[in-house]
Design a protein around this nucleic acid. Sequence first.
DNA 1: TCGGTTAGGTGACATTGTCACTGACGATCC
DNA 2: GGATCGTCAGTGACAATGTCACCTAACCGA
Lengths: 221, 221
Amino acid sequence: MTILDWTERFKGTAALPKDVRERLNKSARITHLKKGDQVFGPMNIPDSLFFLYDGRIRVSQTSEAGREIVLYRIEAGESCVLTTACMLAEEAYNAEGIAETDVTVVVLPKPAFDRLSSEEDAFRNFVFAAYSRRLIDLLRVVDDVAFGRIDVRLAERLLTLGDVLKEVRATHQDLASELGTAREVISRVLNDFQKRDLIEQSRGLITLKDKAGLEAIAHSA
Amino acid sequence: MTILDWTERFKGTAALPKDVRERLNKSARITHLKKGDQVFGPMNIPDSLFFLYDGRIRVSQTSEAGREIVLYRIEAGESCVLTTACMLAEEAYNAEGIAETDVTVVVLPKPAFDRLSSEEDAFRNFVFAAYSRRLIDLLRVVDDVAFGRIDVRLAERLLTLGDVLKEVRATHQDLASELGTAREVISRVLNDFQKRDLIEQSRGLITLKDKAGLEAIAHSA
DNA sequence: TCGGTTAGGTGACATTGTCACTGACGATCC
DNA sequence: GGATCGTCAGTGACAATGTCACCTAACCGA
């Protein structure tokens, strides 16, 4: 494939001197993954650092009983620190990353990572910032799960998933996995939303009819 | 006060060359805090790095409604990365650290931190490991809150809080704050435990009568 | 010992999670 | 077309947990 200069894509590398960037381009490997592929998981801990060049990765956690909750999403230009966390920590964990779209990943071997983070302040700060971002994300998840109502959380999530279009292509089970709850709960709440004319439903598709109304619910925490 | 060589206390600094450690001892400041003092919080974001020399810090999060949940504890020899996370991330958060005992803290100014983490691999790895540890801790919290039963979680927590002694000195409200639930819920579960002869209760004190029984509950997830 | 504060108990009810089952829809094959 | 199968969604009963209002008991300092 064509060799692309990924270093311009990341905050931590864009500002680096040209020679450093060229060195990086040599030592890093670029990988493509299909939508739905597992990027990492309990059985699949990479020994390298991941930087997401293009696409989106969904990081979720699954309980013993098989219920799932989405922790956060990695967008293009961000790095995936959880893999490194899992490398360092001995403890068992059960988070996994799934490619939500086709994905292009820059894989940086650990030696190159070490060298870079010792030599380049910008890069090191980028990595620290990535860690911080995830910590904050998880604080938010804890807050939502421990203290939030699901109608509020579902309204929020519908709005973020719908974004530009007013459509959310997801089954009730998908949404349950987003929020870490059961399908039946989602069904109940969605039916309530429908009765209130906030949404329209059809198989695997939800249409947002009243974004303002949903926002009112989302912010009524 | 007497100057103590804290650098031997931390994994990331103990192995450093003597001259580096001496430099550190000069640039860092040592602070003492009383039991119950706030180490950091939404209104009190330090601009330096914290290393816990002695004592224990409880990190918890509080909801809008005022309900609290304990995220993790920092033990002597560990660093407090959440403060740095909060420095870097712009977003609002509401975690705070409370000294659970009298506490001795090493405060390392950011310039010294930057220099150290660029020059010394051991130190940098120590910091990364600290971040990782907290990420994993939070994954566990998410798992517990989203998927765990409270009787299981309470049994676990009683065992860890009781540890050597068979006593837990905590009010029902304290335990509710540990697990992010309501006092009434704790009261109900404790009464159930008492009926089953697993514990004994008196005002502000719980005695573990049957650790094996509690462990059975704790592991019956 | 009085009075106030804090810890804990209780019942009614709301919300959320679980379970078992049903029907509805869409694809495919004959 | 119609039979069949798998996925998606709806439902009612019940269990677990959270909320609210209010009560009692224990402790503590004046």
